[in-house]
Amino acid sequence: MDLEQFAVILSIGLFNGLIVALVAIGYTLVYGIIELINFAHGDVFMLGTLLTYFGLVAILPGFGVEASLISALALIPFIMVITAVINASIERVAYRPLRNAPRLAPLISAIGMSFILQNVGIILLGPSPKAVPSVLPNDPLIVMPGGRTLISLNEVVVGAVTIPLLLALAYFVTSTRQGKAMRATAQDREAAGLMGINVNRTISQTFLIGGALAGAAGFVVALFLGQAWWFFGFPFGLLAFTSAVLGGIGNITGAALGGIVLGLVKSISDFYIEARWTNVIVFSILIIVLVFRPTGLLGAKQAEGA
């Protein structure tokens, strides 16, 4: 076996996994706090790619700014705020009224929201994928003795955006007052309310954070893969949701770990087996893990154990 090649495949999988992890955390945060699989989450992520596309082709040129890596990075906060607000609005409109309804009801409204967002994507972007202007150079950064590129500049940008966000989230959840309120609400919503925590606000805040991370992930994907597509919510959502379950749904560290594991599995399977078998392999691994560890790799629902 060609070890250098293997190293390249691992590096590709790692950086893909980091993106998946950002989306996966959105699923797991929401599940941890209201035990709902937010099916619209993947589509909020898709809106992130869409906003990046329009930011680079319409908004930046509209202000007379040339689309470059620096000006693109300046878009991140705006994209994160917009997707955060969209995600929180979805909670307010589609989930909160159903909070005390049977558990299937919000699940169905989540699927409905997902379709609505997909169609918004179709209306704005059209039915086919659109190329995002390439502002991310993929110059080789670390080249191995055999001449293959191990890490390129665009991968470093992926890491530079995702890793600080993951660390910031971990800090927020473990070490701030609001993070403590989140953990308390996740543990026991009623008791948290009795202790004076504003439960509604805390839940909204969770959706804001999840939406912001999805927006950031959308930005990274639009630049890294170079495309925006209304359909993106599905493949990434599926992969991210699977990562969240693999790592233990509700467990933030687990979601990040699950994302990276799946990124590696996907990359290895694409290369050594065949691309069309990748989903089969991903889900076989999921099933095997769940048979032996029904709560996922790190155990389910420990939003407090960030």
């Binding site: 590709i12 493949p235 694409d270 691309a275």
Partner: peptide
């Protein structure tokens, strides 16, 4: 030769395989 699915997120690893 390879068969791909349109539902995949990316083909970066496949591109490595093609390159090889």
């Amino acid at each position: 030769n390879d068969s791909i699915l349109g539902t995949e997120t990316d083909y970066i690893s496949l591109a490595q395989k093609v390159q090889q």
